[in-house]
C-alpha cells in the first residue's frame, strides 16, 4: 500500500505546479454554470415554484455540485493515458513493475483530483454564494458527512472509466465507449436530479453508476438525511467492490491476451 501512497504524493506535488493551467479550466466551468443559471431562471419563472421537489436554488446547486465532480475529475490518466499505454505498447514495461498497473493509474488519478477538486470546489462555493444564494438548511456538518461519499464517488467513476480504457486491449479506439458512458453520467445524472425523470424509470437509474457517482453525493449535500446517507454509502461500497472486481478481471484477461498474441 505504501508504494501507492508514494505515487499519489509525487503526482500531487507535480499537479500543484500546474495550478495555473487547472485554473484556466474555470472558464469552461463558469460558462456551463452561467448557462444553467439562466436556463433554470427561465424554467422556474415565478419565485417559489418547485420542480420535481427542488427549489430553484437547490436545482442550481445540484448542477453546480455534479458539474464540480465532472470537472474536478476530468483527467486523461484513466482515459486517454491508459488507452495510449495499452495501444502504444508502453504497458509491457509498466506491467512488469512491482505494482499493479490499474492501482498505479488510480493512485495517479487520485493525486490529480486532490488538487483539481478543491480548486473547483472553492470556485463553486464562491459563485454559488454570490450568484445563487445559500442553501436553506445547509450545515457545515453535512459537508463533512458527505465528504466520504464524494471521494468514493470519484473513485468509482475512475474505476468504470478505467474499465472502458482497458477495452483497448481488444479494440483500437475506446473513445466511442467513453463518449457513451460520459453522456449517461452527464445527461441523466449531472444536468438533472433523478427525480425529474418519470417515476417508472427512477429505480432503474439507481442501478447505474449515476446513483453512486454524481446523484448520491450531490443529493446529500443539498438535502441531507441519515437514511439517504446510509443508503448511498452502502450502494457505493457495493459498487466499488463490483467495479474493482470487473477492472481486475478485464485487466487479467487483457494481459493474458497480450502474452498470447504479443500485443
Amino acid at each position: 500500500m505504501k508504494k501507492y501512497a508514494v505515487i499519489y504524493r509525487s503526482v500531487l506535488i507535480e499537479s500543484l505546479q500546474y495550478t495555473a493551467n487547472i485554473a484556466m479550466g474555470f472558464i469552461s466551468y463558469l460558462i456551463i454554470i452561467f448557462i444553467f443559471i439562466h436556463l433554470w431562471d427561465y424554467m422556474y419563472g415565478t419565485p417559489g415554484t418547485l420542480i420535481a421537489g427542488y427549489t430553484k436554488e437547490q436545482m442550481i446547486w445540484y448542477v453546480m455540485l455534479t458539474e464540480l465532480i465532472w470537472f474536478g475529475t476530468s483527467s486523461n490518466t484513466v482515459t486517454r493515458q491508459a488507452s495510449m499505454d495499452i495501444r502504444g505498447g508502453n504497458i509491457a514495461y509498466l506491467m512488469n513493475k512491482p505494482y499493479h498497473y490499474t492501482l498505479y493509474i488510480l493512485a495517479r488519478y487520485i493525486g490529480e483530483c486532490s488538487v483539481r477538486l478543491p480548486m473547483y470546489a472553492a470556485v463553486s462555493a464562491l459563485i454559488g454564494l454570490t450568484m445563487v444564494g445559500s442553501l436553506a438548511g445547509f450545515r457545515l456538518i453535512t459537508l463533512l458527512a458527505a465528504l466520504p461519499c464524494i471521494l468514493l464517488g470519484i473513485t468509482i467513476h475512475a474505476v468504470f472509466r478505467l474499465c472502458i480504457s482497458l477495452l483497448s486491449f481488444w479494440i483500437e479506439d475506446a473513445n466511442p465507449f467513453h463518449w457513451l458512458y460520459n453522456k449517461l453520467i452527464l445527461v441523466i445524472g449531472t444536468i438533472f436530479p433523478i427525480e425529474i425523470f418519470p417515476e417508472a424509470l427512477q429505480p432503474l437509474f439507481k442501478l447505474t453508476p449515476i446513483y453512486t457517482v454524481c446523484y448520491g453525493p450531490a443529493k446529500l449535500l443539498i438535502d441531507f438525511s441519515v437514511e439517504k446517507y446510509a443508503e448511498v454509502l452502502a450502494a457505493q461500497v457495493l459498487y466499488l467492490a463490483a467495479g474493482c472486481a470487473l477492472m481486475f478481471f478485464i485487466y487479467g484477461k487483457g494481459v493474458k491476451k497480450l502474452y498470447v498474441n504479443g500485443g
Binding site: D173, P176, F177, W179, L180, K183, L184, L186, V187
Partner: peptide
C-alpha cells in the same frame, strides 16, 4: 464506430 457513436452521443441530448 467513431461516426456512429458520435451521432448517438449527440442524440442523448
Amino acid at each position: 464506430t467513431n461516426i456512429l457513436f458520435m451521432a448517438l452521443n449527440n442524440a442523448t441530448f
